[in-house]
Design a protein around this nucleic acid. Structure first.
Lengths: 327, 327
DNA sequence: CTAGGTTGTGGCAACGATTCCACATGGCAA
DNA sequence: TTGCCATGTGGAATCGTTGCCACAACCTAG
C-alpha cells in the first residue's frame, strides 16, 4: 500500500487516520491509491499495536429464546453505530462453555464483554484479565461492577398485586431457579405482594421446574394442577415457563381466564398472538440491550476508574385478557 | 511469558502448540508457567502472523425475526464446536449496512462469511477480497459459489397443492418481494401448483406488501380481503407476513379455517401456540444454520479450489388446524 | 543574515506469535 | 577418533500498523 501510493507507511497511517500533519494533496493521493487497490487496514495489526480491538464479546444463554435474541439485537445495534462489532457466544447455560468463551474474549483483547452470567467465576476471570464487564439481566455472585438489571422484585410484585386485586387468593408460582438474581427477585416480589396484602402464602404453591425446557414447565404445571385443584391463578416466572404452562392449559382445555388466570414475566411475540392474550411484565428487552451497550461504551470512553454504573430497568405490567377475577 | 518460563518465545510457541521438538519437562514447565500467570496467547498477533483468524462473519437481516435467530443459533453452535467464533452483524435489510459489514469482515481477515445477501455487490466484494462466502437461504445475483438454500418453489408448491386438494380455488398469495430467490421461488411454486392442477390463477390475488413489517402485511391483508371477498384461502409467504395476516384476521373475527384458511412459510413458535395452529412449511431452521456452517468449515479445511457446494434443504409441510376445505 | 518556529515526511522500534535456520549436545556406528 | 543423525533450543525475521523522533524545507521576526 505504501508502495502503491509512493509514500512511507507512516504517511499512509497519518493520511488515512487524519492524525498529525499531512499535505492535502498527499492525503488525496493516498486515498485514491487505497480505493484503487481496495486497501483495507488490517484490524489485527492495529489491535496488536494498540493493545485493544473494536470488538465486544456478548455472552448469552440461548439465542433461540426471544428474550436473549432481543437483548442481543439491542446490543448489536448500539455497538454497530459506535463502530464496534459483536462476538456472540451462546453458553447454553453451561458454566464450562462460559469459561471457554471468556478465554476466547481474553485472547482477542476485546474492549469489553456484556454477559448474562451463569457463574461468578467467569465474571471474576474477565476482571482479572482487565476486561470491562457489564452484567446484563442478572448478577452472579459479585455485587459490584457495571450492571443493567430488571427490577425483578418490583415486576413480580406488580403481577402478584394485580392478581390479588382481582380477588385471587390461591396464586401458584412456577419458577425454574432462585440462584440467580432474576429468579430470587421474582420469588421475593411474589412473597412481598402477599405480605403487603396480608394474604397468607401457601409455600406448596411454589413449584420448581426441573430444567430450562418448556416441556419441563408443562410437566410441572400438570403436577401442580393435579395436586392443587383450588388454584385460581398461575404466575409463570419467565417466557419459557409460560409457554409450557400455556401448552398444558390448552391441552386440558381449561378456560382462561374464567377457570384459571395466567400471568407471565417477559413479553414475547406469542403472548400477544394467542387468545386470550397473556398478561405479563415487559422489560422492553431491545432497549434493555441498548442500555447495556451504552453503559459499556461510556465505560470505554470515560475514565476507567469511575464509580460502577448500576441501571435498573423499570418493569411494566401489560394487562391482557388472560387474567380476570376468579369465579 | 517467555521470561516467566525461563525459555525463549520460540519454545513457548512450540510447547503450547505441540509443533516441532520440545522436551517433555520443558513443555510441562511452560504449561505450568502459563497457568500460573494466566497467560493467554494474543489472537491478534497470531492472526497477523498467520494472515487468518478463527473468526467467521455472519451477516443476517434481523435478529429479532426468529427465522434469522434460529439460523444464527445453528451456525454458532457448529462454529463454536470447531473452535471458531461468530461476528454477528444485522444489516436490517440495508445494502449500505451490508457493505459496511463486509469492510469490517475484510479488515478482520475473517476466515469466512455466511450471509443472507441483500445485494450482489457485497458478495462480489467479499470474493474480491479472497474471503470464502456461503450464501444462506437466498442468493443475490450471482449464481455460483457455495450456498445453502431452501427449495422455495417446492415448499410453496406443497402448500398450494395442499390448499387446492382441499378444494380451494381462490387462493391469495401475500408476498413482500420477488427480487430475492426466496420470494421468486415461492411465487413460482404457487404458480406451478395451479398449473399442475389445471386451476386458472387470478393474478389479482397476488398481493404485495409495502415493507418488511408485520404491520404492512396487516394492511395488505385488509385491502385484499376487502377487494376480494370470495377468497377462501390465504398463503403468507413468510413468517412476518403471516403474523400480519393473522392479526388482521383476528381483528375481523373471521373464523379460521371455517370461513378462511391460512397457511404460511417458515415455522416459528407462535404458529403452534395459537388456535387454530397455523399450517406452514418448516425448513428446520436450526439445522439449516448448522449446514451453512458445515459447508463453510469444509471449504476451510479442504482444498480451496473444490467445486462449489450447493445444498438444498428439503422443505416439509406441517399441517395444522388453520387449513380445511372451503364451505 | 540568523535563529527559531511551522509544516510535512520518512526511519525505526514496538506490539506478540510463528517459523525457518543455525547451532549445540549426545549417542552410535564406522 | 571422526562423522553423522536425532533431538532440542535460541536467534532473528516477519506479519501490518502506529507513534515517536529526526530531519528537511520553508517562513518569519529580530
Amino acid at each position: 500500500m505504501a508502495r502503491e501510493a509512493g509514500v512511507s507507511p507512516s504517511t499512509v497511517s497519518r493520511a488515512l487516520n487524519g492524525t498529525g500533519y499531512t499535505a492535502p494533496q498527499v492525503r488525496e493521493r493516498v486515498r485514491a491509491a487505497a480505493a484503487r487497490i481496495g486497501y483495507i487496514p488490517d484490524a489485527n495489526a492495529r489491535s496488536l499495536r494498540n493493545r485493544s480491538s473494536r470488538s465486544v464479546g456478548v455472552l448469552i444463554s440461548d439465542l433461540r429464546n426471544p428474550f436473549y435474541a432481543d437483548l442481543a439485537a439491542g446490543i448489536e445495534q448500539v455497538l454497530r453505530a459506535a463502530g464496534y462489532h459483536m462476538i456472540l457466544v451462546n453458553d447454553d447455560g453451561s458454566a464450562e462453555e462460559e469459561l471457554l468463551a471468556v478465554q476466547t474474549f481474553a485472547a482477542m483483547r476485546v474492549s469489553g464483554v456484556i454477559i448474562t452470567p451463569v457463574s461468578s467465576r467467569s465474571v471474576k476471570s474477565l476482571r482479572e484479565h482487565g476486561i470491562n464487564v457489564v452484567q446484563a439481566d442478572r448478577r452472579a455472585g459479585t455485587r459490584h461492577g457495571d450492571a443493567v438489571l430488571g427490577d425483578n422484585e418490583q415486576g413480580a410484585e406488580l403481577v402478584t398485586e394485580h392478581l390479588l386485586a382481582l380477588g385471587h387468593r390461591r396464586i401458584a408460582l412456577l419458577i425454574d431457579e432462585t440462584k440467580w438474581t432474576t429468579g430470587a427477585g421474582r420469588l421475593a416480589g411474589y412473597r412481598a405482594a402477599h405480605e403487603a396484602a396480608g394474604v397468607p402464602l401457601d409455600e406448596k404453591l411454589i413449584a420448581f421446574t426441573t430444567s430450562f425446557e418448556a416441556e419441563a414447565a408443562r410437566g410441572a404445571t400438570a403436577e401442580l394442577l393435579d395436586a392443587h385443584p383450588d388454584v385460581t391463578a398461575l404466575f409463570a416466572a419467565n417466557n419459557v415457563i409460560a409457554q409450557g404452562a400455556f401448552q398444558e392449559i390448552q391441552r386440558r382445555r381449561i378456560a382462561v381466564p374464567r377457570k384459571l388466570s395466567l400471568a407471565a414475566y417477559d413479553d414475547v411475540p406469542w403472548m400477544s398472538m394467542v387468545r386470550p392474550g397473556i398478561t405479563t411484565v415487559t422489560q422492553h428487552t431491545v432497549s434493555f440491550g441498548k442500555r447495556c451497550a451504552e453503559v459499556l461504551l461510556s465505560r470505554l470512553d470515560g475514565a476507567a476508574e469511575q464509580e460502577p454504573t448500576i441501571i435498573h430497568v423499570q418493569p411494566e405490567l401489560v394487562v391482557r385478557a388472560s387474567t380476570a377475577a376468579p369465579r
